[in-house]
Design a binder for these strands. Structure first.
Length: 464
RNA sequence: GGCCCUAUCGUCUAAUGGUUAGGACAUCAGGUUUUCAACCUGGCAAUCGGGGUUCGACUCCCCGUGGGGUCACCA
């Protein structure tokens, strides 16, 4: 049992690609098979080494490690050439001399007749002699597959069941620009066979390619692999996921502080579910429970709200030291401020790691800048607020153990003497944070320390 | 336009002829809390339409309709 992920290095690894890779990976691992990676870089213009690296890198970050070394189509030219020559010799492929203009016109005419713009194969029966003559005359040509006429190509899609496409809807497609420049549908078939791929799991957009590849495989005498076509991932507008609504690049989600485990879990549930109510899944558990029959057929909207929720679950579940490490790139950091305490105070409030920068910024500021009226709790008078803050100030000044637990205890005790807990806690917390929403006063005091806390409370009192 | 795929709450989905159509996210209400989160409880919310088949259709069949994909000398 062997699967593969075959991206072309013409852009960053995107969400859809990740899901394809993941499902291939899960299916292979579930069945004790192998998961291969193949870089489809036959398009020399668009393929870039940097994208290849980007794809490798992100796949690894997400834990999708492939078996063997990654194959690169650009290094397999000899193999393709051999098969191409074989087809030409056997007459299952032929040279086509149609010009671009001719093809464009043909397509246009066919469309006018409300027919599918399938190439009609003008040169398919030219014959060897005439072909050679044209080549010698220097006419430009490409290599086309001689599509068998009047035949149904049928395959059993593992997700969709039987799919039948007539060869008249396929036509004589181009398989290579020349002997040294093979094209996708051809290289794909050759490689899947040569690499021993048994199951091809890929996006729905490849359904129309499948009959082409089967036909090619048949002519080449290959065993035909199993196919499974995944539905597309959609944007909020129900259209194919695009950059319009946020990023489609996996790396961007990583940069924003979505944890790899959460991304994997979320993506796995886009079009698949175990049929139980369990939703939080580690990679190992996914491998354990994965089954191709449970993949859904219809397109799934990429719902960022659910990803946020799931990421929050993972953030709250990982060890605090590990989380602190992960948060480091997003933390302002400062001498005297314990990163771990900051993370601990905010981990319940985080949907993604990058959010921590903004919501904790007040902890690092020298001078707080906020509307003084914010200090006033409900219908308290300015004097009452001042008194309350003075009591808090005194408490902080006298406290020795500034662990948040101890401070919280003392604060609560003091608050009981106040008309209401809020009348004591709210002004204090605002004086320390300058915000209407923040961590609790005890946590803040522990983080910024006694001296700074006293300074902030004093400033609040003086401002009133 | 041809061909192909597809259709359950706003979203992800469960229920493969018999359920008050279930869960999760989001949302709303309540609880807890100094605040915001987190957490707990509860509410709202769906079988695209029309025909069949059947004692009985979300489920099977047909016809519509909607959505999507594809028709490159890209992959």
């Amino acid at each position: 049992m062997r699967t593969r992920f075959a991206p072309s290095p013409t852009g960053a690894l995107h969400i859809g690609g990740l899901r394809t890779a993941l499902f291939n990976f899960l299916f292979a691992k579930k069945n004790n098979g192998e998961f291969f990676l193949r870089i489809e870089d036959t398009d020399k213009e668009r393929s870039k080494k940097e994208w290849e690296i980007e794809i490798f890198d992100n796949l690894k970050k997400l834990g999708l490690n492939w078996d063997n070394r990654a194959e690169r189509q650009s290094e397999r030219g000899e193999i393709y050439k051999r098969y191409l020559e074989k087809m030409l010799k056997e007459g299952t492929a032929y040279y086509c001399f149609c010009t671009k203009e001719e093809l464009d016109k043909e397509r246009e005419d066919l469309m006018k007749l409300e027919k599918a713009p399938i190439h009609q194969g003008k040169y398919r029966d030219l014959g060897l002699e005439n072909t050679l003559k044209k080549i010698e005359a220097g006419e430009k040509c490409v290599i086309r597959f001689k599509c068998p006429p009047n035949k149904d190509v049928v395959f059993n899609d593992l997700i969709r069941g039987e799919i039948k496409i007539h060869t008249s809807d396929v036509g004589d497609f181009v398989i290579a620009k020349d002997l040294n420049n093979p094209l996708y549908n051809f290289t794909c078939v050759v490689d899947d066979f040569e690499m021993g791929v048994t199951h091809i799991i890929r996006g729905e957009e490849h359904i129309p390619n499948t009959p082409k590849q089967i036909l090619l495989g048949e002519v080449l005498g290959f065993t035909i692999p199993e196919f499974a076509h995944l539905s597309l991932i959609l944007g909020k507008d129900k259209k194919k996921l695009s950059k319009r609504e946020g990023s489609t690049a996996v790396s961007d989600y990583l940069k924003q502080g979505y944890l790899p485990e959460a991304i994997i879990n979320f993506i796995a549930f886009l079009g698949w579910n175990p049929g139980t109510e369990k939703e939080i899944y580690s990679m190992d558990e996914l491998i354990q429970d994965f089954s191709i029959e449970k993949i859904s057929k219809s397109g799934a909207v990429f719902n960022i709200d659910k990803l946020d929720w799931m990421n929050g679950i993972y953030i709250r579940n990982i060890d605090i030291d590990e989380l602190t490490q992960k948060c480091l790139p997003y933390l302002k950091q400062k001498e005297g401020i314990d990163n771990k305490k900051v993370v601990k105070a905010y981990r319940d409030r985080l949907k993604k790691l990058s959010e921590i920068t903004e919501i904790t910024s007040y902890l690092y500021e020298e001078e707080l800048n906020y509307d003084k009226n914010l200090l006033i709790w409900k219908d308290m008078t300015v004097e009452e607020v001042k008194d309350s803050l003075k009591k808090a100030l005194q408490l902080v000044e006298n406290v020795e153990d500034i662990s948040s637990e101890n401070i919280q205890k003392q604060l609560v005790e003091e608050a009981k003497k106040a008309p209401s807990v809020g009348s004591f806690m709210w002004p204090l917390r605002v004086s320390l944070s300058g915000k209407k929403a923040s961590a609790g006063p005890a946590e803040i005091i522990e983080i910024i320390g006694k001296e700074k806390s006293i300074k902030r409370i004093n400033q609040a009192i003086n401002s009133l």
